[in-house]
């Protein structure tokens, strides 16, 4: 077992992962994330970005390889310990904002804080501050169904940032949005994370998200690649063969 470098807050070596049905997810991905860094993981759909994030955050145990968080091995932890680690240190933003529909916006944002045992007034103040920063302060008393999608996504970003996590995992946070909303959501997310020194691991399949990141790594078919050399897309395949006149 090789000890990870000291300056990396999150460090993975030779991660392997395959889905329950046996289809391959990751085959040997190694990476290190430094403290306060914003790392973008880009790649097309099905290249294993989500699987990588799930393995790094301890949501699913990796099939092989090592994950270290602050010099603590995550890959040997039990389910309970990983749960606690996720609750106390990590935050997660999914492609669709999964807000609790019965609670209004500020209650949704304050919920992680209240679940960690902080008082109601304190949690409310923090939640309102974050909502204000992310430009959804006006909607603090609305229910999630009354918001448009970009606002909902910003609320879920506020919810993820409010308990001040050490690492924030954002799995395609802009997937269901249009370009204008997408830029804005990414910009707010990265700006807030930078100003609070929160490490961010971000995925996306357009080069746009790497513009907001300090460093970009590319995944293709579950492997880390530096330059993608794919064969050029041929002419529409089989057309000449089907044509009778050719």
């Amino acid at each position: 077992m090789v000890a990870p470098p000291d300056n990396d807050v999150l460090w993975a070596r030779a991660l392997h992962y395959s889905y329950d049905d046996g289809s391959p997810g990751l085959s040997g991905v190694s990476l290190g994330v430094q403290e306060g860094e914003i790392l973008a993981v880009v790649g097309p759909r099905g290249s294993g970005k989500t699987a990588l994030l799930r393995c790094l955050s301890g949501l699913t145990p990796a099939g092989g390889g090592e994950v270290w968080f602050n010099s603590v091995p995550v890959h040997t932890m039990g389910a309970q310990a990983r749960d606690r680690l996720r609750r106390d240190r990590f935050a997660w933003i999914g492609p669709t904002p999964s807000l609790v529909p019965e609670l209004n916006v500020w209650e949704n944002t304050a919920l992680p804080l209240m679940l960690r045992g902080s008082g109601r007034r304190q949690a409310k103040t923090a939640a309102l501050e974050w909502l204000e920063r992310l430009d959804v302060g006006d909607a603090a008393r609305k229910r999630p169904y009354q918001l448009v999608r970009a606002e909902r996504q910003r609320v879920s970003i506020a919810r993820a940032l409010a308990p001040a996590p050490q690492v924030l995992f954002a799995d395609e946070p802009t997937a269901p949005l249009h370009r204008a909303d997408r830029t804005q959501v990414l910009r707010t997310l990265t700006a807030a994370a930078r100003s609070h020194g929160i490490t961010v691991v971000l995925t996306g399949h357009d080069p746009e998200c790497s513009a907001f990141a300090d460093r970009t790594i590319a995944l293709l078919d579950g492997r880390r690649v530096n330059t993608v050399h794919l064969p050029p897309v041929p002419e529409t395949e089989g057309r000449a063969a089907c044509s009778l006149s050719a």
């Binding site: 529909p101 430009d135 229910r143 169904y145 999608r149 249009h178 910009r187 707010t188 990265t190 700006a191």
Partner: peptide
């Protein structure tokens, strides 16, 4: 916006016609 500041809201005019089902009204 410079890094460290919060971006000003830029609502997309008529941008997103809903493709996914919205949250159901309670």
């Amino acid at each position: 916006s410079a890094p460290g500041t919060v971006a000003v809201e830029a609502p997309a005019a008529g941008a997103a016609p809903d493709t996914l089902p919205a949250l159901p009204e309670p």
